[in-house]
Design a protein around this nucleic acid. Structure first.
Length: 285
DNA sequence: CTTTTGTCCCTTTCCTGGTA
DNA sequence: TACCAGGAAAGGGACAAAAG
């Protein structure tokens, strides 16, 4: 199979257009058409439906997209393995929940950068769902996510255990039961955040329906708005310990069955463990 | 309502340049 | 000389908007 044609196919599938792929690759559009035709002939399969307003990928085309992703990942991995001389260097992209990045990682990343200065360490923050997707699609080398995670292609190790607390402003009276949350506004991260999912699950299990949910993009915004009395939220104790000690937030215990949450480091089982990633895993031990 | 015009996107054909 | 990759140009089919 022609690797170049496969690359062209991948771009056409991504752009959803032959002319778009031609612009993207700086090729004449006719060449893209020819490459796709050659690939279709070689594979004896129709990869795109052509119509007057463009193209639509076929089920076989969608299947080829997943194989192309694996093939190019393998090629990329081969290049890196051949170049890997066991000295930690090159890129290392790590995903992390914002809460973990804010409290747990600074010391860890600082030590790693100090020990392995030739590694180009990059941190991406986002929700657990997003990081799971990125790890599975080889977009990041590994990620800190909230457990539990169950996926046949994912390897994981528990790195932290967080104690979750409900937080309110200081004027809020102590919560005698979870039902006291009824009619309060919940301040949460956008959809895909596992802490949010756990909070919503807990409330659902307890039969409590919050009156309103407000979504935020940053941790600071949630903490600030809770402190200002806008609503209530649930976060790891480690994240809000300072504010609780300073007297800007009030913590409320939750039942033991919901209190403990594990933070996991996940990576693809089948991915070659580069020297930078191996050293990172050693540091987590 | 019908026709015309412009636009979009893909295919086909022909040509050029590089290489074995 | 043959083959291949890639570019340019022409053209076809369909749709949307403008014009009559």
């Amino acid at each position: 199979m022609d690797i170049q044609a496969l690359k062209v196919f991948q771009v056409v599938a991504k752009m959803g257009s032959i002319s778009g792929a031609a612009r993207e690759l700086n090729y004449a559009q006719s060449n893209i058409t020819t490459k796709i035709q050659q690939l279709e002939t070689h594979l004896q399969a129709t990869l795109f439906y052509r119509h007057n307003r463009g193209i639509t990928i076929t089920p076989k085309g969608k299947l080829l997209v997943t194989y192309a992703e694996k093939i190019f990942q393998l090629i990329d991995e081969t290049n890196r393995v051949m170049k890997d001389d066991q000295t930690p260097k090159g890129p290392l992209i790590i995903g992390s929940m914002e809460t973990t990045a804010a409290v747990r990682l600074p010391v860890l990343l600082s030590k790693y950068s100090h020990d392995y200065p030739k590694v180009d360490l990059m941190l991406k923050t986002g929700p657990t769902d997003q990081h799971l997707y990125e790890v599975l699609h080889y977009e990041v080398d590994g990620a800190f996510v909230s457990g539990p995670i169950s996926h046949p292609d994912i390897a994981q190790k528990t790195v932290f255990e967080e104690e979750m607390v409900l937080i309110t402003d200081m004027n809020h009276p102590p919560l005698s039961s979870i039902a006291d949350i009824q009619n309060r506004t919940l301040l949460v991260f956008r959809s895909g955040c596992s802490y949010r999912a756990k909070l919503e699950n807990m409330l659902h299990q307890e039969g409590v329906a919050p009156s309103k949910i407000m979504e935020f993009g940053t941790l600071d915004a949630i903490i600030g708005c809770v402190a200002a009395g806008l609503g209530i939220s649930m976060l790891p104790y480690s994240v809000v310990a300072q504010q609780i000690q300073d007297g800007t937030l009030r913590q409320h215990q939750i039942s033991t069955s919901y209190r403990k949450v594990e933070t996991l480091f996940i990576y693809r089982k089948d991915k070659y463990l580069s020297t930078p990633l191996t050293k990172f895993l050693e540091l987590l031990e």
